[in-house]
Structure formats: structure tokens, C-alpha cells
Write a protein that binds this DNA or RNA. Structure first.
Length: 277
DNA sequence: ACCCTCACCTGCACGC
DNA sequence: TGCGTGCAGGTGAGGG
């Protein structure tokens, strides 16, 4: 269920915890986890690799291995990386185990089975179907208000749908899209192409602000790979949502009741007063 | 190129 | 207590 801030924090934590470690062996327990490969081939390919560093692109985690391979992982809704000490039992829904050279195991567990992993040559990473169509990184120089304005101008879908499209803006999910729209006081149901160009700057800034704030506060979820007993919930940023999951509660700005509408198959939370069309 | 629907899974909260 | 229903933070395939 992670969005950009969670994935960023997971990647940073993994970089610190497993950067420099080597993978002695890998065990894939759920075949469909590894896209485009068999568990056997995947394990054979990754065995003996050392992890140079761990990065992020969009919501994908990139393990850069020596030997010219990159492991691309996506957590989707419920995927989680855990670093288990030698005696710790495997969590439920363990789909992959990487045996490291420090006696620990890096485990991928995923209740809803939506997560995926893929090994690709380093030179091909950004040409894979997973990464090649992604929009610019929100914190890159490319992601300017002008970029956002011209992207929105070409979409006939609503702002909310367009913001969730990773080829238009990368990193937003259902929570932070709602938060960014609220913060900039923009109505989620405006057709993107009809959105006033004058207001794009404020929306652009709000996107950066919700990401920055959440990363700084430790995100909404408890994604610490070393917190192997903890629940997924209980992240430091939890409870700081301004509109998400607050249906019927008072708007923090005006006191109106926050509304929830199902839109494009997903819940959209907004303040009917602050976010008028 | 764009946009829509459905599919992938398990668990949990809710109402009866 | 049990059972049915709808919902959950993400994306890709396949169709038009």
C-alpha cells in the first residue's frame, strides 16, 4: 500500500541495512512473484550477488547488484521487506527468502500476493516496461509546474485519476493524491484539461509538500525492515492525514464534514467547501 | 495515445 | 457466533 514516501523510506532503510551484503542463496516460494522467470532460474541468477546499494524509481525498489544485475521489486498493496535475525520465524505469506552473508535473511512477505520482483541487466533497467513509461521523479528538475500543466492539459480524465496515473505523475497513490488536492484546495473531479493553468503551481507545490512532510515524519506505515513483529500500521505519520479516511469528520480548515465519493473504483476524500470547483 | 473494466489475493469491519 | 458483503494504500492486461 506504499506510495512514494513509504517506498523512499524502505529503500533508504534497506540501503543502510543490506548495502554491501552478499546473497548466498535465494528461495522463491511463490512462483508468480518473479515476473518473466522461473524460481529456479531467478535463484540461480541472483545467487552469489552482492548488493551495492538500494535505490528507488517511482514506487519501485531497485537493488543494484555487482555483476551488472538489478533486482526490481514492487510492494504493490501489501508487500514488505523484513530483515530476520537467525532464530526468527518466517512471517506468514513469505514469498521470497534471501540468505545473506551475515547470517540474516532478507524476506519478502506479501499478504495480497500483488507484489513482484524481476532481475534485469543494469543497462536495461530504465528500458523495462515497469520503468520506461514512468513520469519524471517528483523531486527531479524535470518535474516543474510547466511539466504538470502541459501533462494535465492533455488529459480528459479527472485530476484525481490523472494524478494517480504513474505515467503522468509518479509516486502519488490514493492517500497522497487526496492530501495534495486538499492542501492546494483543488476539487478532485475537475477534468484535468479544464484545470486553470493559474492554479497548477499550487497543486505542484502541494504534491512536493505532502511527500516531503511524510518522508520527514516517517510515513504513515511502519515499514521498518527490522521491526519484524510490528504491525504494518503505527507509522509515525499515521493520523496526520488531513482528509484521507476522515469521512464525516470536520475539515481541519473550515469544519465542514469531509466527504467520500467512490470515483474510478476508489474512495476519494475531500472537503466540499475548501475544494469547490 | 487514451480510457475503461476486470483481474490479481487475503483479511477485516460491518450489518443482519 | 456465523455468514454474506464490501472495502483496502497498486498496477497490468486486454478491450474499445
Amino acid at each position: 500500500m506504499p506510495e512514494l514516501p513509504e517506498v523512499e523510506l524502505v529503500a533508504r532503510a534497506l540501503d543502510k541495512l543490506v548495502g554491501g551484503r552478499c546473497i548466498l542463496a535465494a528461495e522463491i516460494r511463490r512462483a508468480r512473484l518473479v515476473a518473466g522467470s522461473t524460481p529456479k532460474d531467478f535463484s540461480r541468477l541472483i545467487r552469489g550477488s552482492c548488493i551495492n546499494c538500494v535505490n528507488r524509481r517511482g514506487k519501485h525498489i531497485l537493488f543494484e547488484l555487482n555483476g551488472g544485475l538489478v533486482l526490481i521489486a514492487h510492494l504493490r498493496m501489501s508487500g514488505r521487506f523484513l530483515l530476520l535475525p537467525p532464530e526468527a520465524p518466517l512471517p506468514k505469506f513469505t514469498h521470497a527468502i534471501f540468505y545473506l552473508d551475515d547470517e540474516r535473511r532478507l524476506v519478502f512477505s506479501d499478504q495480497r500476493h500483488f507484489g513482484m520482483m524481476k532481475l534485469v541487466p543494469a543497462a536495461q533497467v530504465h528500458k523495462t516496461k515497469e520503468l520506461r513509461a514512468l513520469a519524471p521523479e517528483p523531486f527531479s528538475e524535470e518535474f516543474t509546474p510547466q511539466y504538470l500543466a502541459s501533462t494535465l492539459a492533455r488529459s480528459r480524465r479527472t485530476l484525481k485519476e490523472t494524478l494517480l496515473d504513474q505515467t503522468k505523475v509518479t509516486g502519488l497513490g490514493n492517500i497522497y493524491a487526496a492530501e495534495a488536492l486538499f492542501l492546494s484546495r483543488v476539487n478532485p473531479f475537475i477534468i484535468a484539461a479544464d484545470f486553470s493553468r493559474r492554479r497548477v503551481g499550487r497543486l505542484h507545490q502541494a504534491i512536493l509538500d505532502v511527500f516531503t512532510e511524510s518522508i520527514a515524519h516517517g510515513s504513515t506505515l511502519n515499514i521498518d525492515p527490522e521491526n519484524i513483529d510490528g504491525s504494518y500500521y503505527g507509522g509515525a505519520y499515521e493520523g496526520r492525514w488531513r482528509v484521507y479516511d476522515r469521512e464525516g469528520e470536520p475539515c481541519i480548515a473550515c469544519g465542514s464534514r469531509i466527504r467520500r465519493l467512490t470515483h474510478a473504483g476508489r474512495s476519494t476524500y475531500f472537503c466540499p467547501r475548501c475544494q469547490r470547483r
